[in-house]
Structure formats: structure tokens, C-alpha cells
Measured scan of single mutants.
Amino acid sequence: MTSCHIAEEHIQKVAIFGGTHGNELTGVFLVKHWLENGAEIQRTGLEVKPFITNPRAVKKCTRYIDCDLNRIFDLENLGKKMSEDLPYEVRRAQEINHLFGPKDSEDSYDIIFDLHNTTSNMGCTLILEDSRNNFLIQMFHYIKTSLAPLPCYVYLIEHPSLKYATTRSIAKYPVGIEVGPQPQGVLRADILDQMRKMIKHALDFIHHFNEGKEFPPCAIEVYKIIEKVDYPRDENGEIAAIIHPNLQDQDWKPLHPGDPMFLTLDGKTIPLGGDCTVYPVFVNEAAYYEKKEAFAKTTKLTLNAKSIRCCLH
């Protein structure tokens, strides 16, 4: 018999989150649709729960009410004593943790798909938090293969000092899905179709896995975050240069030392320094102006996964 890495157990509980950011409308629209008619997301033997994560922000069509829901799922915020004085999103995070967690427990949901849009030209993107997770690498390989020839990129946010504390991190297997470009507060049919297909293929993978299909060893190309880059700023902290036209919409493309990065209003080009080629992502993302992030630098690498098969009882 072929030796293989056996994944822990079959997958039982899956959640699909929309509206973690209330103005990213593809996930909101799909989740609302699936709450009314969820036939397309159901798979035999699998509990799939669509869920609106930040209903107040969705109602106002804004990213958040008090603070970013997708950055506060750490033990400090989840452990705060519940009171009306807490920011709305912290209270909501505790409610979500109660419903789908608790985080880092045996009772937490197996998989959470968190649906997002970006204003950046990132196409279909899967966000991975753990480079050693054979199950998710296999799932992402399946999704990428199923979507081809449509490109699907994998963004690895594993980093020693950049801690995200994402909404989906309460699950055993957290999956971020990011599709763009799409303006905030807008629905685009092409973007919706791409996100819908990503979810379909992900659920198909889980179904095949649960039925005992063995997935042979595989490898995927990923883009691992190195650092986030702020806009150049003046002495008052105001933005002093904008994304250069040569960099705009060039997510995932190589940016070499000396290539144009920013452009000042008086026409001066600010190039990339250093001696390493990087791959920019979230270029000129609207939501990241407040976070002082013009783009993120990534490096390209390959992740390998062992063969996996479900432990059938």
C-alpha cells in the first residue's frame, strides 16, 4: 500500500463567511444568496454554514464600524470581559468565536472560507496562513488546477512579526479568498463568478477527501510576504508620492531593483532599492491607505505537500 500522510479526520463542519468587511460585496451577495438557497454549497455528509460576519458594517456598506474585524481574533480580544464599552467588532468577534470556535479547541469548525474583495488587480487569490499544512496545500492545488487556465495565486502570510489574527483563524483550516479588482461597494459579475467557482472547487475537494480519495504528493507556487511598504510621506505625515503608473495593476509581476515604484507630484520617480527582485501584491489597495500600506513585497517559492487521505471509520 502506498505510504501517505493521513489527515486527522474527515471534514464535518464548514463555514463560509461574507461581510467580514461590509463594503466587499461579492461575499456579502453570495452568502445572502446561499442563506436563501444553499443547494449549490451542500455536499453529502458535510455541514456547510453561510454566515454574515459583520452585519452592521454590511448594512452601512462600510469596511467596519469601530475597528477591523479581520485583525482582532487574538486571545487578548477574544478574552476581554464582555461589555457595551467594547468596540462593536470586538464584541462581534467574541460572538463569532462562540459560534464557530472556540479558537484553538477541538470544537472549532474544521474549515472557514472568508470571502473578500480587493481594489487591487490580484485576480483569484487564496490566502494561506501555514506553509506546513498538507491538507490546505492539497486543497489549493486542486482549486488552482480546477480553475486553469484562469490564474489563481496563493498568498502566504506566515511571518515572524506580522500577526494578522484573522476572522477565519478560529477554524482548524483557515482559508482566505480574495478576488479583484473590484471597487468597494460595487458588485461585478465576473468577480462574483470567479469567487463562486473557487468555493465550488473547494467544496468538491472536501467531498472527494471525505469519500476516501487519496491525493498524491503535489507542489504549489506561493508568494510569501516579506514586508509592507508605506507611501513616501512629508514631515507632516502626508502622502508625498503615489503608486507609479508602471507599478499600478502589476500585482504578482516581478519588481526589480531600480524599477519605478512611486511618483511625486513634481514628476520624480522613486525606484525600488535593494538588490532583490520582489513580487508586489495589494498594490494601491483602497482599504490600506489608513493602514499606511502602499503594497506588500513578496518572494516566490514552492511548497510541497505529502499525499493525504481521509481516515475512514
Rank of each mutant, 00 (worst) to 15 (best):
T2N: 12
I6A: 14
I6H: 14
A7I: 10
A7F: 13
E9H: 07
I11M: 14
Q12P: 05
V14E: 01
V14N: 00
V14R: 00
F17R: 09
G18L: 02
G19F: 03
G19V: 03
G19R: 02
G19S: 03
N23I: 00
L25K: 12
L25S: 14
T26D: 00
G27E: 00
G27D: 01
V28K: 12
V28G: 08
V31P: 00
W34N: 00
N37T: 09
A39M: 09
E40K: 03
E40P: 03
I41K: 01
I41M: 04
T44G: 08
G45C: 07
L46R: 00
E47N: 07
K49V: 13
F51L: 07
F51P: 01
P55W: 09
P55A: 14
P55E: 13
R56Q: 13
R56H: 08
R56I: 12
R56V: 14
A57K: 04
A57Y: 05
V58D: 05
V58M: 07
V58N: 05
R63N: 08
Y64M: 09
D68H: 06
L69K: 06
R71D: 14
I72S: 10
F73N: 11
D74I: 06
L75M: 10
E76K: 10
L78N: 10
G79D: 10
G79Q: 13
K80D: 12
K81T: 15
M82L: 11
S83L: 11
S83M: 10
E84C: 11
D85P: 06
D85K: 11
D85I: 12
V90Q: 10
V90C: 09
R91Q: 15
Q94G: 07
N97M: 11
N97Q: 07
L99Y: 11
F100D: 06
P102M: 10
K103P: 10
D104T: 10
D104V: 08
E106Y: 09
D107V: 13
S108M: 13
I112N: 00
I112M: 05
D114F: 05
H116L: 11
N117L: 03
N117E: 12
T118Y: 02
S120E: 01
S120L: 01
G123F: 04
C124F: 01
T125S: 14
L128I: 04
L128G: 02
D130G: 05
D130C: 05
S131V: 07
N134C: 08
N134I: 05
L136A: 04
L136I: 11
M139E: 00
I143V: 09
I143P: 00
K144L: 15
K144R: 14
T145G: 06
S146C: 14
L150H: 12
C152N: 00
V154N: 01
Y155I: 08
L156M: 10
E158I: 03
H159K: 13
H159Y: 10
H159G: 15
P160F: 13
S161G: 11
S161D: 09
S169N: 13
I170Q: 05
A171H: 03
K172S: 06
V175G: 00
V175M: 02
E178G: 14
E178D: 09
V179W: 01
P181M: 02
Q182I: 15
P183Y: 02
G185Q: 06
G185D: 03
G185F: 02
V186K: 00
V186I: 13
L187F: 04
L192M: 15
D193F: 06
M195P: 01
M195Y: 03
R196I: 03
R196Y: 01
R196C: 03
I199P: 02
K200E: 07
A202R: 02
A202G: 11
A202T: 02
L203R: 01
D204P: 01
H207W: 15
H208N: 07
H208R: 10
F209A: 04
N210S: 05
N210E: 05
E211K: 11
K213A: 13
E214Q: 12
E214M: 07
E214S: 12
P216R: 05
C218D: 00
C218K: 03
E221L: 03
E221Y: 03
V222D: 00
I226L: 14
E227A: 06
D230W: 06
Y231Q: 01
D234K: 15
D234E: 11
N236V: 15
N236C: 15
E238L: 09
I239T: 07
A240W: 06
A240L: 11
A241L: 00
N246V: 08
Q248A: 06
D251Y: 02
W252S: 03
W252I: 04
W252C: 09
K253I: 09
P254W: 02
P257F: 02
G258F: 06
D259Y: 05
P260R: 01
F262C: 00
F262S: 01
T264D: 08
T264K: 10
K268R: 14
G273S: 09
G274A: 05
T277A: 15
T277N: 06
V283T: 05
A286Q: 12
A287W: 14
K291H: 10
K291G: 15
K292P: 06
E293G: 06
A294S: 05
F295T: 00
T298L: 04
T298R: 01
T298E: 01
T299N: 11
K300D: 02
N304T: 12
K306R: 09
I308G: 02
R309I: 08
R309N: 08
C310R: 15
C311I: 07
L312H: 09
